[in-house]
Design a protein around this nucleic acid. Structure first.
Length: 356
DNA sequence: CCAATTTGACCGGA
DNA sequence: TCCGGTCAAATTGG
């Protein structure tokens, strides 16, 4: 590849990842709501029938006040209080649709309460539902729960007892068409309100294995790691396609339960400013510890070389980044798509995050 | 019109 | 009865 071509591709990558329009500052907004919380839940009236429309959006007032569905500090919204605290740390978009900051923000009135109220009007006669079978699970702690190389569809959100933040439930987007049983839950850790300015951490629990065809993940977020160049025995090219069969590729497929480990995964400055992450893996299985985890998209190494200074700086910036995150990088990858180490290094060493 | 998300309702195990 | 997990109607925007 010629240098000119490299530069061109680099420019394209940068444009993809760092659009010219400046990103807005992180939104941490505290608002006073004139509307009392719905402790007398409108979901059911006195006769037990539902009045409230499901899935209804809040008013425009809530627009832009919510970008992260895992962000609701429910504990900070006591039912007796009229105060709502809107925190926007990252406008994730992961499902092929745009971010939905305009989606309603309903302070999480206790679902227990709504359950109790709902009991009054319960009349649905649903088929017996099978309780989720206990399958192999693995969990990790990450600040970027959505960049795991798979496409997930949210099917529920629940305020968990004793937890500050609600838990979101996802299933593989292929669950319907291919019967893929993979699921995951994402819950923000109770790491305090301020968290010292660091990116919030989320506990992601993966359940079940992906059975959908890997080829469908061509549009999965592209995530690279800086250490690819620092790890010994790296070949001249690092394939980043998640569906590649090459076992030598260091990638992450989070649903694989490969035992417990604590690793550091770094992004090569592309994919998203927030990809840099400390990932702590744990697993319910008792598999032996392995050196390199072949996981799909990320490269994880137990022996981790210190990243270059420039990369560290970039990583720090990524850690500090709390602004809106744009879509995952959707690259129409051709077969055997590869990325050159030199390009990787160039991406790493360029101060591409100075725009933030 | 379709796909994705929201969120109240409902189920079932503990 | 409590509580976590799941369903599915409603809603929205492309």
């Amino acid at each position: 590849m010629t240098l000119g071509r490299q530069g061109e591709l680099l420019a394209q990558l940068r444009e993809l990842l760092l659009p010219s329009s400046p990103t807005s500052a992180p939104v941490v907004k505290v608002e006073e709501s004139s509307r009392p919380l719905d402790t007398g839940h409108p979901a059911a009236s006195c006769d037990g029938r539902r009045r409230r429309r499901r899935g209804s959006k809040r008013g425009r007032d809530d627009k832009n006040n919510r970008g992260d569905q895992h962000e609701e500090p429910a504990a900070a919204q006591p039912h007796h209080s009229c105060k709502r605290r809107y925190v926007h740390t990252a406008g994730f978009e992961f499902y092929g649709r745009r971010v939905q900051p305009s989606r309603q923000f309903l302070p999480h009135v206790s679902t227990r309460l709504t359950d109790m109220v709902g009991l009054l009007g319960r009349r649905r006669c649903l088929c017996r539902r099978k309780k989720q079978q206990k399958s192999s699970t693995s969990s990790l702690v990450t600040s970027v729960p959505d960049f795991d190389g798979y496409q997930w569809r949210k099917y529920g959100q629940k305020q968990i007892e004793g937890a500050m933040y609600s838990r979101s439930y996802y299933r593989c987007t292929r669950s319907a068409e291919q019967g893929c049983p993979a699921k995951r839950t994402v819950q923000r850790n109770d790491d305090g309100e301020d968290n010292g300015g660091a990116a919030p951490k989320y506990t992601v629990v993966y359940m079940g294995e992906h059975t959908c065809t890997a080829n469908d993940y061509l549009e999965a977020p592209v995530i690279l790691e800086t250490a690819a160049a620092a790890v010994p025995n790296t070949t001249s090219t690092n394939k980043i396609r998640p569906d590649d069969d090459d076992d030598t590729i260091n990638t992450i497929a989070p649903t694989s339960s490969a035992g417990s480990c604590t690793s550091t995964t770094t992004a090569a400055g592309i994919g998203s400013p927030a990809i840099s992450d400390d990932i702590t893996w744990s697993s319910s299985s008792s598999s032996d510890y392995v050196d390199d985890y072949d996981y799909g998209l990320f490269a994880v190494h137990d022996s981790w070389a210190a990243p270059p200074a420039a990369a560290s700086a970039a990583l720090q910036e990524m850690e500090n980044f709390t602004g809106p995150i744009r879509s995952p990088v959707h690259i129409a990858a051709a077969d055997c798509w590869t990325i050159d180490d030199q390009l990787l290094l160039q991406l790493v060493n360029e101060p591409i995050f100075c725009n933030f």
